[in-house]
Design a protein around this nucleic acid. Structure first.
Lengths: 248, 248
DNA sequence: CGCCCACTTGAACGTGTTCAAACGTCGTGG
DNA sequence: CCACGACGTTTGAACACGTTCAAGTGGGCG
């Protein structure tokens, strides 16, 4: 379905190579991007709604997620991010953050100055298009989540999310066979799906009784992909995983 | 809150000038963009999920919306579009449409070849960033709709959408005083909000009884903005209406 | 005038929420 | 090593919100 992942040690290079053939100059330029590195615990905000960042955050290890609060009790999560992602890349064109970014697990992240990215883009004119495309895929995933929250019931939403996360992990080489690491609490799943944790629990138990997958909050193993995809109405087209045409 | 709109006859120039100061060269290049023009009735698909367009659609007159079907009965609408918008601009970087675009009202649209856009971008290096930014704002609106569908109740969602549409119309000069044209059926509102038309009707009636606004499916007049914004938890920050810095 | 479409209303039903309590597990410190 | 606490999961019961189906209303347009 998609190109084989490479094993480049740089997460950003690895991610982009899963999408497009980089020239060696582009690869070198990406590896040369300088950033300040930080280790964070789980559940820490990286950037907050209202901030005006001058740098963007590259996930090097661990998971992050984006969210926004409605009032001070209701949280809506928009996306989960894995190594190689730059979840707040949008801050290079939108001055003020309209949402927050936080770590889901303990994580290592790098902060890249916007200035460095602009330089990278002007020197390597194919790259802005590649990153633009990444933000368009983000938006495609948002649309699919909207379909879920607007038009699918809880079990279907859960099945869909599990399929999506599995495919994304697999596409960057983080899944083995039918198993992938997935350290997400039911409360967090609920905040991503627009459900209460109680209802996530009940729907999850109902799904579990069908033996389609096992999931204990740490590891996801999918036993019957086709059936799960059917329940979740999952069609991966919106992830746009087909690689781009080769570099000229 | 945002810059005064210009009255340039070209909808695309008018839209972009509401965001950024264009140089006269940029303006001329935009006006010179060639496109095939078409008149469409209300409720016609312009591009469909699965298509691989070689052109992008500029709305010249009337309204359009983007949507996706779940099964063949449930429809989810993602966005509404007005003159100056290029709702499927994403097709320049994503080969296959993951959703459809249709007219809401009778409309006049222009189809711009992707090739022309690429040429425009390479000749006017500030423009890709401006268009990229537009697609990032699209995504910001998707996020806000996710908050609504996941975490707000029907009356709040409706109030929020009315506020959003009013502000967007005002920002391009399509609202007069407190009144704006808004030709949307309750069924369509429901498909955008993740609600049944029956429930939209009831929630709308309940809101109407508060005399915050009048809306008859054609025209929206807002009487008590503050109160409506409060009910909808509407904070326009996510629309990123502040103009960009002036051209150097 | 009459038809069509959108809006309105009612009643029964279903999905998901809320509140509360109990249970398990894991990591920490005594 | 065990006790404890923190946190996530599981369960129950009552309730609220939203859906569905069905019928009736009203306005605009041919």
């Amino acid at each position: 379905m998609h190109r084989p992942y490479t094993t480049d040690p740089h997460p950003l290079v690895r991610k982009l190579e899963s999408i497009v053939d980089l020239t060696s100059e582009e690869r070198d330029a990406l590896r040369a991007l300088s950033f300040m590195q930080r280790e964070l615990n789980a559940g820490q905000d990286i950037v907050r709604e209202g901030d005006r960042p001058s740098q963007a955050c590259l996930i090097l290890e661990g998971w992050a997620f984006r969210y926004k609060m409605a009032g001070d009790d209701r949280r809506q999560i928009f996306s989960f991010h894995i190594p190689g992602d730059i979840p707040d890349l949008l801050s290079i064109h939108l001055n003020t953050m309209d949402h927050s970014l936080a770590t889901l697990t303990a994580a290592r992240v790098g902060f890249i100055q916007h200035r460095s990215l602009h330089e990278l883009f002007s020197r390597h004119p194919r790259l802005p298009g590649v990153f633009w495309r990444e933000t368009l895929i983000d938006a495609a995933i948002f649309r699919e989540w909207m379909v879920g929250m607007g038009r699918r019931k809880a079990p279907s939403r859960i099945a869909h999310l599990l399929c999506e996360l599995y495919v994304k992990l697999e596409s960057v080489g983080l899944a083995n066979g039918h198993t992938a690491p997935l350290r997400i609490s039911q409360e967090t799943l609920g905040d991503a799906l627009g459900l209460s944790s109680v209802h996530v629990n009940r729907a999850l138990m109902a799904l579990r009784s069908k033996n389609l997958f096992t999931f204990d909050g740490r590891t996801l193993t999918i036993h019957k992909w086709d059936r799960l995809a059917e329940i979740g109405e999952f069609d991966p087209a919106y992830l746009h995983l087909e690689p781009l045409a080769r570099a000229a």
